[in-house]
């Protein structure tokens, strides 16, 4: 079973994503901030991380950089409300594989996650 980590500080968004990917057959981990996310990455080694950017304590960019430094194989998708060109630029520079903006289409997201995993 593929392991996926979802990081967001909005409980309702977390809930919806968790529901979606569990249904798709992933083993889903969730984290409410960057710090928690880093802990889970260390412990469970997810193959893909869906990352929000604006979060308390450690932000999404930092999590991504850290992650990619340790293990380039882990895929990262930024899923954020920040939609300015410079934010996207910054996200890709941090090493993300994909940058998606909120609000998102669930089908589209699931399809892209699957494509990345294969």
């Amino acid at each position: 079973m593929s392991k996926i980590l979802i990081v967001d500080d909005e409980p309702n968004i977390l809930l919806s994503l968790e529901f979606l990917f569990k249904k798709e057959g992933f083993k889903v981990f969730i984290a409410r901030d960057g710090e928690e996310a880093l802990g889970i990455i260390e412990e469970s080694g997810p193959e893909l991380v869906i990352l929000d950017i604006m979060m308390p304590k450690v932000d999404g960019y930092e999590v991504c950089k850290h992650l990619k430094k340790k293990n380039r194989e882990t895929k990262v998708i930024f899923l954020t409300a920040k939609s300015k060109q410079q934010d996207i630029q910054k996200g890709l520079e941090a090493g993300a594989d994909l940058y998606l903006t909120k609000p998102f289409s669930t089908k589209d997201l699931v399809a892209k996650v699957k494509a990345l995993m294969n």
């Binding site: 909005e10 309702n12 968004i13 919806s16 994503l17 529901f19 979606l20 249904k23 409300a81 920040k82 300015k84 909120k102 609000p103 998102f104 289409s105 669930t106 089908k107």
Partner: peptide, 25 residues
């Protein structure tokens, strides 16, 4: 303005995600 739109996107995101889930499942 950018902050306001950003703040609005959060509830919209949830609303859209759940609506789609409700629609599909």
């Amino acid at each position: 303005i950018s902050t306001v739109t950003h703040e609005m996107k959060t509830p919209i995101t949830s609303i859209r995600a759940f609506s789609e889930i409700l629609l599909d499942e």
